[in-house]
């Protein structure tokens, strides 16, 4: 197969969208937090927690949608922790976020080991299945790419539109954007800076956990240690790439998914004489280059990372 022919196959684009799905959840979550002025570096750990909690809930019989709910609540819990530490207490968002990542990851592994002490090979669940929509799923090219994905991919795409609508078209979104730019403006209008920021962090963290849950409940059917593998960090970079816009966030996630799908196929083409690590590196290197090209023009939310305290004008 020729290298450029890869780009024309439906399996390549289907894979790109599949790989992008957890990133879409994660980047939307990180975007909501940062729009309100709080960087959430807990994302990597919240992915792991979401992956574990969602999977475990399904394994214990909660059903797939129940599992997603459990994952979201788990993410919201760690988000609340981060929010309490960084918003009313005003601690360093970097330190708190990294702490949350370490904490959430360890707790997830610990819970997994404690809940299933005797298993040697990871137990499996029945994950979300590819959709089978009459006519649409059978269309050439478009069918496999769009209509044979799982419900979670469609949930992610719907959330892009929802997050955009809320941020740009509702009073709540306006208040969130304002609190990330100038908390004094929000306070002067009698709105609660703390409630808005904490709410945004909790909601954003719930979305991040759904990204993690996709890994165990759609992409795979089991939980492994180290399965998040830096996807959370990629989301933090993608938010900057996206200039804090949901539409561009989708684009960035798809771009990364395409890079990743491409490198897998490149491995089979020329893997005989190039070490596989080089291919694994490609999406990250390309992401860094894309970030460098885009991020210099990025307009950060002005109050990002800046704690705000009531009564200190």
């Amino acid at each position: 197969m020729d290298i450029l022919q890869i780009l024309l196959t439906d399996s390549f684009w289907a894979a790109a969208l599949r790989i992008a799905t957890p990133l879409i959840f994660g980047v939307l979550g990180a975007l909501i937090c940062e729009k309100a002025g709080v960087l959430n570096l807990g994302i990597e750990g919240i992915f792991a927690a979401g992956a574990m909690a969602g999977w475990l809930a399904v394994y214990l019989g909660a059903g797939l949608w129940g599992g997603l709910l459990v994952a979201a609540l788990t993410g919201a819990f760690f988000g609340l922790l981060h929010a309490i530490l960084t918003v009313p207490l005003g601690l360093s968002q970097h330190v708190s976020g990294l702490g949350i990542t370490l904490f959430a990851t360890s707790v997830s592994y610990f819970t997994y080991r404690t809940a299933l002490p005797d298993v040697s090979s990871p137990p499996r669940i029945i994950p979300f299945q590819p959709l089978d929509i009459p006519v649409l799923s059978d269309l050439p090219f478009i069918g496999p790419v769009l209509f044979q994905q799982t419900a979670m991919t469609w949930l992610a795409l719907a959330l892009v539109a929802l997050v955009w609508w809320v941020l740009e078209r509702t009073p709540l979104g306006m208040a969130i954007r304002a609190v990330g730019d100038n908390p004094d403006a929000v306070d002067a209008q009698g709105l609660s800076v703390y409630a808005l920021r904490m709410g945004a962090v909790v909601a954003g963290s719930a979305l991040m956990a759904l990204g993690g849950a996709f890994l165990t409940m759609s992409a795979f059917d089991a939980f492994f240690f180290g399965m998040v593998n830096g996807r959370g960090w990629i989301c933090i970079a993608l938010v900057i790439f996206a200039s804090w816009r949901p539409g561009k966030a989708l684009l960035g996630a798809l771009l990364f998914g395409a890079f990743d799908a491409f490198q897998v196929r490149m491995q089979t083409e020329v893997g005989a004489f190039v070490p596989s690590q080089v291919f694994l590196m490609i999406p990250y290197v390309l992401s860094i280059i894309a970030l460098v090209l885009v991020a210099r023009r990025a307009e950060y939310p002005r109050a990002l990372l800046k704690p705000w305290f009531k009564g200190q004008r």
Partner: peptide, 11 residues
Amino acid sequence: VHQHFALAENL
């Protein structure tokens, strides 16, 4: 109206 305006510049 404060001396330092309480306006969100991105809105």
